[in-house]
Design a protein around this nucleic acid. Sequence first.
DNA 1: TTAAATGCAAAGAATTTGCATAACA
DNA 2: TGTTATGCAAATTCTTTGCATTTAA
Lengths: 133, 133
Amino acid sequence: MTTPRRLLVRCLFEASGHRTAEELAAEIQARAPDISISTVYRNLEELERLGVVVHSHLGHGPATYHLATAAHGHLVCRKCEIQVEIADGFFADLRRRAIADFGFAIDPRHFAVIGLCATCQAAADDLGDFTAG
Amino acid sequence: MTTPRRLLVRCLFEASGHRTAEELAAEIQARAPDISISTVYRNLEELERLGVVVHSHLGHGPATYHLATAAHGHLVCRKCEIQVEIADGFFADLRRRAIADFGFAIDPRHFAVIGLCATCQAAADDLGDFTAG
DNA sequence: TTAAATGCAAAGAATTTGCATAACA
DNA sequence: TGTTATGCAAATTCTTTGCATTTAA
């Protein structure tokens, strides 16, 4: 148990949101300025190997990390990038089918489900009307 | 209509699998060696803007590109990385719920659904038995 | 002949790695 | 005291960008 590791774990427990490695590094560096981001990556990797932490991909940017106990799925708008957290129940049917048809045990939280939020759909429709007219 | 663009479109139509920008560039360069990969990226971007091509993320590596007409979802094993193509019907329930509860029109093909294939689940179980015993 | 597309090289973002030093047990 | 972790810098991977030159309509 080293200082960087202790601070990282503390950060992860204190706030439960998803944060990128860079954001976590910034929080840690506020307390211990010369902890390097490679140490953060290495510790996240180790914590993930131990099953304490998971990471997920919510878009094209950097991965986000959080406690495994706080994992959940996401809908992300491809246009405005708004994120919605969704309950595992949303994936019940998909999970059942994946097992039944392919023997796959899915982790539907690793990658977000991308789409268009209601607002951006409306905007796209308006644009459609405009360009058509 | 320039030579690089023509060759890229031909490549995309000839074989229907998903290929990375690098793979597409290699195919193109077999015919016209000094077409650069940045041109491939630029044309893919343009074709995507026009709705002819889509890209998806099947794992942590490079994105894969294919004709929009050939789009489909994927299950990918996080361990052995085997890929299974799945029909849109798999996502019908998720799609319905996303619209009903959040107004989201999802594109469940952009990011793969990650998980463990049957073989890797079995391997994990064996390991579990072993380490437990 | 003029706007658009290209090639090259360099920049960028996110992550990983090599290696000498430092910290833990 | 010996393994494990760290900091730093450099390397990697994937993708984008700047800019001078070429190509196509």
